[in-house]
Amino acid sequence: MIDSREELTFETVLDAPPEKVWRALTIPEYRDRWLQQPDDVKLHLVAVNANSLLTFSWVERDEESLVTIELHPTKDGGTAFRLTHVPVRIPAAANSNDPGTTMVRAA
């Protein structure tokens, strides 16, 4: 269950074709420079669709979230870029005393 208030979305249009943006996101030395992830963050690839979608598991301080990057070509040869960062939550145990409780999944 994801609370939409916890979802962070960033959208922009880049002046480069999706294939070039894809290289910047998938070659580790380029990705690390571009995304500038903190040293204590662990990234693991979860899903991929060449030149259009990447989903990473982002683990920071034992809290996991999913970072999804979507790329779509624009009419003028650029790339529509959308990054969504969503915390991963799992429902509380069925025997929980608080039915509205969710728990953060530990990595």
Rank of each mutant, 00 (worst) to 15 (best):
R89V: 00
L66I: 05
M103Q: 15
L71C: 09
D3G: 06
A107M: 12
G77D: 09
A47G: 07
L54I: 04
E11G: 07
I90F: 01
D62Y: 13
T74M: 06
P87W: 07
V13H: 04
R5S: 14
P99R: 02
N97F: 11
N51L: 11
N49G: 05
V86R: 14
V88I: 10
P91K: 09
P99G: 11
E19G: 12
H44V: 11
T79Q: 04
G77P: 09
Q37L: 08
V21W: 03
D39F: 05
L14V: 05
G78D: 07
A24R: 05
T55W: 09
T55R: 12
H44R: 13
Y30V: 00
S65N: 04
I69T: 02
V21R: 03
P99M: 05
T9F: 02
T68C: 08
F81L: 06
W58Q: 02
T101W: 15
F81K: 02
E11S: 14
V59H: 09
D98S: 11
A47W: 03
S4L: 12
T9N: 07
K20P: 03
E60Y: 11
T101V: 12
E11Y: 01
S4G: 00
V13P: 01
A50Y: 07
W34Y: 11
I90N: 02
E6H: 06
S65G: 14
T55N: 03
D3S: 10
T68V: 08
P87H: 05
Q36T: 06
L66E: 13
V48Y: 00
V67A: 10
G100I: 10
S52C: 05
D40L: 01
A94R: 12
A94P: 04
W22E: 13
V86H: 00
S57T: 08
